[in-house]
């Protein structure tokens, strides 16, 4: 057998093994997104008897003046960045704690990943109950501590509702961040810290000069994953507030869902999907670019 026929066979077998998976991915990922692009140029709603009628860029034009869309985009941005900041900080703290040797560490690690593994929709119910205005445990604790005089209506106030959903999201996903960061921490050699300490560096300096730079790839990857997931957050907010009160926690995903399911406006819903997709892809592209740079510079330094 010549080299060429072996290569050819490898190609064929390779494609044979890859194709079934690719077909499923094309069906569930590529089709819906391409379809949304196509449909976004049509009006298909109750006004057109749910039949598609070509409308050019009308859906996008409408989006420009749609204050509810801008509001939801703003809500999503606030939610994403505040949650991300807390998750990265807390996740780093948890990872540092779990990285240290202590008795019962395996057990604590197990407990620390529990929030990540539990269904978001169900834990959203648990948090709704915690934030309940009458019988919620949070109000009870605050009352007992004398910090408040009467129960706060957490989910009934625009700002407080946003704080509540962010809190629940931070609880749910900090463990994911800490799992990724912990894996990174474990790959950093202890010798580095010892050498640094001998040179007279304080722990804080070690953290800044060794841990942070070496952990940067993991931090960026965790941030990227968390960004994408927060930007598309649905379950948590849908169950906790349904986007309320008065749209103050309505995220882009909830608006898309309502547009399609409640108002049966498929064309406009598709345009919303397209814009969300483009924002996401743009941010991901920037993050990959940064990640490449960080990996390169880490490679040069070491």
């Amino acid at each position: 057998m010549t080299q060429d026929t072996i290569r050819n066979r490898e190609q064929k077998t390779g494609w044979l093994l890859v194709t079934p998976a690719l077909i499923v991915l094309l069906l569930v990922y590529a089709y819906p997104i391409l379809r949304a692009f196509w449909l976004s140029f049509f009006a298909q709603n109750l006004g057109t008897q749910l039949q598609p009628e070509f409308a050019g860029l009308a859906n996008y034009g409408r989006m420009m003046g749609d204050s509810r869309f801008w509001q939801s985009l703003w809500n999503t941005t606030i939610f994403t960045f505040v949650a991300l900041a807390f998750e990265l900080t807390l996740g780093m703290g948890v990872a540092l704690v779990l990285n240290r040797a202590f008795r019962g560490r395996g057990f604590v690690r197990t407990i620390a990943i529990l929030p990540w593994a539990l269904p978001t929709a169900i834990m959203a119910l648990a948090w709704t109950w915690i934030f309940n205005d009458q019988y919620g445990i949070l109000n009870d604790i605050l009352l007992r501590l004398g910090l408040i005089q009467e129960g706060i209506n957490w989910l009934g106030n625009p700002t407080l509702a946003m704080i509540a959903v962010i809190t629940a999201d931070v609880w749910k996903t900090t463990s994911f961040v800490s799992i990724l960061l912990l894996a990174g921490l474990q790959s950093i050699s202890g010798d580095l810290y010892e050498a640094h300490a001998i040179e007279g560096a304080t722990p804080w300096q070690s953290f800044r000069q060794i841990t942070l730079p070496l952990l940067m790839p993991q931090i960026l990857i965790a941030a990227l994953f968390r960004f994408a997931q927060s930007f598309g957050v649905f379950d948590l907010v849908q169950v906790m507030t349904g986007g309320g009160p008065a749209g103050s926690t309505e995220m882009v995903s909830l608006y898309i869902y309502a547009t399609v399911r409640r108002y049966l406006d498929f064309g406009y819903g598709a345009a919303l999907v397209v814009v969300t997709f483009i924002i996401l892809v743009a941010v991901v592209a920037i993050a990959f670019y940064l990640l490449g740079k960080v990996r390169k510079s880490a490679g040069v330094e070491l």
């Binding site: 991915l25 569930v28 997104i33 930007f231 598309g232 649905f234 498929f266 819903g269 996401l280 991901v284």
Partner: peptide, 30 residues
């Protein structure tokens, strides 16, 4: 195995892990 376009497939697989399900639900509903 060496397949042509392997890097493209991998890149696509990597990027779609980031897609939130809300982007898919309209097309899938249809």
């Amino acid at each position: 195995l060496r397949i042509k376009g392997e890097n493209v497939i991998l890149a696509i697989v990597l990027v779609i892990t980031l897609f939130p399900y809300i982007l898919l639900f309209l097309g899938l509903l249809e």
